[in-house]
Simulated scan of single mutants.
Amino acid sequence: MGNKWKHIVAITAIAGISWLLVQNPYTNEYLFELKGDSATVLKQKDSLLEEIESKAAEYEAPPQDARIDPVWKSVPGYNGLKVNITASYHVMKKDGVFDEKKLIYSQVAPKKHLQDLKAEPIYRAHPDKPVVSFLINVAWGNEYLQDMLAVLKKNQVKATFFLEGKWTKNNPELAKMIQEGGHEIGNHSYSHPNMKTISSAASKEEMQKTNEIIEAVTNKKCRWFAPPSGSFRDETVSIASSLKMGTIMWSVDTIDWQKPSPEILIQRVMSKVHPGAFILMHPTESSARSLDTLIKQIKKKNLHLVTVTEALSEKRMMH
């Protein structure tokens, strides 16, 4: 038989086998099952996608603009949350089941920011942000400072230290130790005057001189100013703003200069602590002995201990 006839016979045989397979009822059933499985998977995917789309709004939050509050003065903005439906679907599609823990979010920035507001003092972070900041004002108390730094390091907590200029000039090694511990450094004036009563020129000199000394010692620029004893007038805040510093106050006071027992200090703070709290303290024996317990108790409230800059950022804390 020639090659031509062999080729024709082979084609005929293949066609016949193919016809038999297609006509075979078991083959039809198998193809139907494949088609059915594919349709089921597609349907599952579509229903999951629809469920994510329908439930997304329950988990979203609008951004909140920075604002001036009649009591709390400058209140920072806070990012909103929007569910990334496509990303959430891809994470959940393997199991084919909706799981709120697997939702993927995008943060949405507010339209008005802290820097858009008129210069006003800041007493706390946004009340919805689960953060707390220690404000440690340093103009004396060297004997307790290193103990506090050791406790902060042990607990992996960063604080914001407001340094007096004269103290920094006289204690450059301690100032460097604070900076090398990863803590934030702010301006606490040069000589601890009453900023409410001194002249505008003197106020500016107090801040400017301190900024220069702190930058020379730590190589860090100050973003925040804490008036000594919390005393200031509107012009003080404006002068700080002209030097690119926000004015920081507090919402919880340890009153540690009165030398309370650790038990009294801890009770005083924990009875008033709140999301966004700024806790004022100094390097005193009372605060040094209370610090470890304060940190542990604040963390038990699911509040994150962060610097002032971190607390005032619009970024949401995502668990």
Score class of each variant (00 low, 15 high):
M1Y: 13
M1D: 13
G2R: 13
N3R: 12
K4G: 02
A13Q: 01
A15I: 15
I17E: 06
L20G: 04
L21T: 14
Q23W: 10
Q23F: 01
N24T: 07
N28P: 04
F32P: 00
L34K: 15
L34V: 14
G36Y: 14
D37Y: 12
D37E: 15
D37R: 10
S38L: 15
T40S: 11
S47M: 11
L48I: 10
L49F: 10
E50D: 13
E51P: 04
E51N: 05
K55F: 11
A56I: 00
E58N: 11
Y59A: 05
A61T: 15
A66D: 09
I68M: 10
S74D: 09
Y78K: 08
L81E: 09
K82G: 08
V83G: 07
T86S: 15
A87Y: 05
A87E: 13
S88G: 07
K94V: 12
K94S: 14
D95Q: 13
G96Q: 12
V97D: 07
Q107C: 03
H113N: 11
L114P: 05
A119G: 07
I122T: 12
Y123E: 08
R124C: 04
R124L: 04
A125C: 14
A125T: 04
P130G: 06
P130S: 06
L135P: 02
I136F: 07
N137I: 05
N137L: 10
Q146C: 02
Q146L: 08
Q146T: 06
D147E: 12
V151F: 06
K158Q: 10
F161I: 05
L163A: 06
K166C: 02
W167Q: 06
T168H: 00
K169R: 14
K176A: 01
Q179I: 04
G181W: 04
E184Q: 11
E184I: 03
N187E: 11
H188T: 02
S191Q: 14
N194S: 15
N194V: 13
I198A: 03
S199P: 11
A202F: 10
S203C: 14
K204R: 15
E205G: 09
M207K: 00
I213M: 11
I214A: 02
V217Q: 02
V217M: 01
K220N: 13
K220M: 09
W224H: 09
P228F: 11
S231V: 07
E235Y: 01
E235V: 08
V237R: 00
S238L: 13
I239A: 10
S241I: 01
L243P: 00
T247A: 07
T247W: 01
W250R: 01
W250D: 04
D256W: 01
W257H: 03
Q258V: 03
Q258G: 00
K259A: 10
K259D: 12
P260T: 04
L265P: 00
Q267N: 12
M270N: 06
H274M: 09
H274T: 07
G276R: 00
I279L: 02
I279S: 03
I279G: 04
M281P: 03
T284S: 08
S286N: 02
A288L: 01
R289S: 10
S290T: 03
T293G: 03
I295S: 05
I295Y: 02
K296N: 13
I298R: 02
I298Y: 00
K299P: 07
K299I: 03
K300M: 10
K301D: 02
V306D: 09
V308C: 08
A311S: 15
S313N: 14
M317H: 12
M317W: 12
M318H: 12
H319I: 09
